[in-house]
Design a protein around this nucleic acid. Structure first.
Lengths: 201, 201
DNA sequence: TATAGTTCCGGAAAGAGATTCCGCTTCTCC
DNA sequence: GGAGAAGCGGAATCTCTTTCCGGAACTATA
């Protein structure tokens, strides 16, 4: 198994450009998978995805040898979208407002994407890198917002951005039968805990 | 637990008592499943479970037609054990201490049982009843402890026992790569939020 | 544009595991 | 102790996953 799959940098031995049809097919598969995961869950038969994408099973397995590879790719796409939303918010609002808005955006993402929570909690080692990816992509944005609020003395410096990120990711994962705003209220409570500067840790 | 109608067959169609060997086999299957789930995850092959239990696959499917039935049964057993631990704690400690201890017990349960979080977040409708079972069994115990603390004015009355139960269940579910005490710290922060009686909701 | 050299695709086929089915065994009740 | 119901085992079947390779499609070069 090759150990270099980043592909972000052109090596000395120029690797051939990825064929355009292959790239197109990968996109089609990701789109189809996102749709099918949403309707039939992440355990949907592979054929359902390939049929929707108009491709053969072989193609699916060529690009995503493991099912977890496909799931990861779909989720990482969503995480990217969430991360991309951060700069705009930061530019348009004051830090504390931007933080709140962005946390709402994150909460919405986690709450909507069932497959995300499922993958995260599956215990499958294949998804071990996922929380790392979440941290890597979303950590910096949240970190800067958090630092600004802390510097202003509005928040106790008892949590890292990683703490908060994980806590939101967990709290906002939907549970069957619970009130829809449960996650949001619990996050608010958590932030109240951060604000209570008079309580000693 | 189910009450049985020993001897007094007053109903029209007398429900025959469950055969003792069948009951014994169900117990053996649950024990085996608990072990196998712990080592190989909840997606372990059925044969691994039946081999450990010393039974045939047919017997497994007779008692648990769906895999989710088996998983649910195992988890409900664990929840029962957690609920059973509450009265003893309540009898031995003051309410606030008992609350803390019991939350620790709950956190330990959630943190240890990977399959629990996975099932809860799977999105599979088969597990929809699970959080209800959790609430039904653990809600009353937590509720009384919470009421006592609220009555003493130590805690804002902004959360129900259901809120707290779900929040703990979510926060303490382990995520790959996170610090082991993350859940515990976040729960502590949540409780700080509850204690901050000077903050208006 | 034609050609050679790759890469990639499709879907049949093999493999792995889940689920069913039914003859036989074990238990319960009278 | 015997009749009859309940339960058991595991081979057979079914479903979905994963592999494999002949041929199609694409890219680079002239």
């Amino acid at each position: 198994m090759s150990n270099d799959t980043t592909g972000s940098r052109t090596a000395a031995s120029a690797p051939r450009r990825i064929r355009t049809d292959a790239r197109r097919n990968v996109e089609a598969l990701l789109d189809a998978a996102k749709t099918v995961f949403g309707t039939s869950g992440v355990d949907a038969p592979a054929k359902e995805i390939t049929d929707l994408a108009g491709l053969g099973v072989g193609t699916l397995y060529r690009h995503f040898p493991q099912r977890s590879d496909l799931i990861k790719a779909v989720i990482e796409r969503e995480i990217d979208a969430c991360a991309d939303a951060a700069p705009a918010l930061a530019a348009e609002h004051k830090p504390d407002i931007a933080l709140a808005r962005w946390l709402e955006r994150l909460a919405a993402f986690v709450a909507t994407k069932r497959g995300f929570a499922a993958a995260l909690h599956s215990g499958d080692p294949a998804f071990d890198g996922l929380s790392g990816y979440l941290m890597e992509k979303l950590g910096p944005a949240l970190g800067s917002l958090l630092d600004a609020a802390t510097a202003a003395g509005e928040i106790r410096a008892v949590v890292s951005s990683q703490d908060l990120l994980y806590a939101v990711a967990k709290l906002c994962a939907p549970l069957p039968g619970e009130e829809p705003d449960h996650g949001r209220r619990m996050v608010a409570l958590l932030v109240d805990g951060l604000r209570s500067v008079d309580i000693q840790p």
